[in-house]
Write a protein that binds this DNA or RNA. Structure first.
Lengths: 199, 199, 199, 199
DNA sequence: AATGAATGAGTTTTCATTCAT
DNA sequence: AATGAATGAAAACTCATTCAT
């Protein structure tokens, strides 16, 4: 009677499980999260977890994947050709930091942490590289007058890196999204020297 | 009489142990490293480890601390007042990436990974904050003409974040230190828009 | 409408299941065989298996029983009164080893293995005892001139034991049926000491 | 205080553990024996078991090995050149069945059962083959007047097989060692047909 | 008649950690 | 000062078995 034991279609259960997994992984970290804990959180039995995801690793991988997708989906729309290059970059930044702000746990623990989990670092790096590529394209089209030899992918990596650092500050509440966006936008566009005049 | 059981002064033993610990933690990651493995690497017995460091956590903490110090020591000299502000920033960047290049394991696994280890994230964040503060000062004195309201600490965080991202690329051999320094220096100083002309 | 869910008469289903069970038990061993695997092999659902056989143990028992029957059926015809005693024994041997040769898996894994499965040892022993009794009768009538006090059942056990050992060698391909039959026949009839002259 | 927790030298513990393992494996069978049960029987903790033997499989293997050695040691002395061939065979048989009689558990479950444990069958077969070789040599030198083409190894296999079957009857108390020895000796030497005249 | 969905109960295995010497 | 011996506690994973449909 106690609410459990419902027969749910596969797809629903899958999400229910991922939700629980993300939640607990986020709260306690990968290694300190037991399958028992996830099962409990999802209000299902452990074997279900294994039935659906095969192993703890796979489950975590699935979490990363889903969150990665959501992440990309949140940032991608910035690439709207209707906007000027500058606006596009700004929008991307905004989407990014906004996503982090609204998904602090996912960001702080899933993303950051997975990088520390040898086994999954590549998964994360893939997602990140996709974001970097996307960003590189934005930058490329937004900085037409830049040095033609510019390696935009690396520049994008740097910019994303800066964004990540700021994102951490957003996620930990040390800075507001709006302020962060302004700062990064400004910094990216005009650099340190040009914060008033040019060097 | 036979091999082993040498009585070493405390300080020596401590380093011997930390060396071993860093080595193994770096190679296998925090959770996948057993105290057994560290003891074996240090060629001492496990109880010794506990005698000196009390617990695995403390031991790891000690590793972080030492590496953090080395890190700061490597970067600090950049704050040489004899150099122009620009030179100081450049030197700092160079020291930073150089350190990473020469200590890839420490960087990639100890530093990055510790961030994922809930328990130690603060340790790392402390070290990082110190670096950020240092950098903030450098930036502050190197950008005298900047907007007076500029929050240099956050800017520094962003710059360090960019640096970290690039550092990852250095550590994984995807980019050379020299090139990375040039790129970051250029990016930081003139921003995206100013890479030739102004926006 | 689409594939599956055929309604089959009980008897057919039963055989289909036993076939699958024997196949998988033989390939992987009792404990390493999951009900899932059997259901998959039989292309039916697990509950079906339980509906028909109640439990894994019962299912295995059913396998043993069926194979035991086939076994007896293969050997029994040797008891043809038209044949001389010697011929009968020889024929029995031949049938036995021939059965093993043609049912290597059944022999090597089902039979041998079941002996190791505490729970089923008795099942096997029963089947074996039936064979031994059969053999004992054959021997009794084929060795009219033997010591009248001879305990033929034990002799039969020994002979069957020898047969089993040789059967293992047949099943593993280390000896041919024909050669094995000759050897055993000779050995049984004349013993080690009398291996010079003919019967 | 409760008797446990003594510091024992490695060698002693090893035996203590093997004793317990053999005991429990024998009583319950390989798969139905948990490491917990063995640890309890040995009055030590489970980790010790793993420290010394690495895994359940290895532990079982160690049991087989030890029992196999004891087995061989029990039978080997029969190969005393002072005895006549006939005596040697008889002594071997006697040692064999005597060993089984005095080590019923070892025989009935370790030996028989291991054969059913896919993973260990080869271990057992090795031990058995060694016994067969030994026996083959005995037979060869005890049956000088046999057909020169005789494949003694196979004959030995048959004899040992017969012996095993009888051993089972000994182990289950259905026949006395003495009677069994006489019967097998007689059977082996004179065969079924020759059960009238004396040696 | 037939099955997809679900789980209770257990197993092996691994560590960080501590005595007794 | 130094260690071999020992363990409590927990985690991942599996499987026979049963509902609800």
């Amino acid at each position: 009677m106690a609410g459990g034991t419902k027969r749910l279609p596969r797809a629903v259960r899958e999400q229910q499980m991922l939700d629980a997994a993300v939640e607990v992984f986020a709260r306690r970290g990968f290694h300190d999260t037991s399958m028992d804990a996830i099962a409990a959180e999802a209000k299902i039995s452990k074997p279900m977890l294994y039935l659906y995801y095969g192993s703890k690793d796979e489950l975590f991988r699935a979490c990363i994947q889903r969150e990665g997708l959501r992440f990309i989906e949140a940032v991608a729309p910035a690439g709207n050709p209707q906007l000027t290059p500058h606006e596009q970059v700004r929008t991307a930044l905004e989407s990014f930091l906004d996503f982090v702000d609204r998904n602090r746990q996912s960001w702080q623990v899933l993303y950051r942490q997975a990088l520390g989990q040898q086994t999954f670092a590549s998964e994360i790096d893939n997602a990140r590289e996709r974001v970097i590529e996307l960003t590189a394209k934005l930058l490329e089209s937004s900085a037409r007058n830049a040095d033609p030899g510019t390696n935009f992918e690396v520049v994008a990596a740097a910019v994303i890196g800066a964004g990540e650092a700021i994102a951490d500050r957003v996620a930990s509440g040390r800075i507001e999204v709006a302020e962060a966006v302004d700062l990064l936008d400004d910094l990216a566009w005009r650099g340190l020297a040009g914060r008033k005049k040019v060097d």
